[in-house]
């Protein structure tokens, strides 16, 4: 296996390849910053999502796309915390 060629030449690569990745990043961070879940909950969800990908045989899993895993993990943590199914709240208090 070889490192990707850009590892040696592209150290100043942009952080996000696409605006949607930046939005996904900001959305996960925002929901944590405003107390809708603990950052560790999101992180655990991301670890599980990536773990599932790593446990899937090469032939069956898609290519490595970090932000796809990010989005899957975000959807799961939003569902786990009932952010879209709980009654509407007037304040930004905890959903625990």
């Amino acid at each position: 296996m070889r490192l990707h060629e850009t590892c040696t030449t592209d150290q100043a690569a942009p952080h996000f390849d696409h605006e949607w990745q930046r939005r996904a990043f900001g959305l996960a961070l925002a929901l944590s910053e405003f107390g809708h879940y603990d950052w560790s909950d999101f992180q655990q969800s991301l670890i599980e999502t990536i773990g599932n990908w790593e446990d899937t045989p090469d032939a069956e899993r898609g290519e490595w796309r970090y932000y796809d895993h990010w989005v899957t993990a975000l959807e799961k943590v939003v569902a786990d915390h009932h952010l879209l199914t709980a009654p509407v709240r007037a304040t930004g208090d905890s959903h625990d």
Binding site: R23, L31, F34, R65, E75, L84, V88, G92
Partner: peptide, 19 residues
Amino acid sequence: SSAAKVAALESLLIEKGVI
């Protein structure tokens, strides 16, 4: 598909008053 999911999720969270 991923881009659409993110956009939809943000819209729903705004609609719901979460953000």
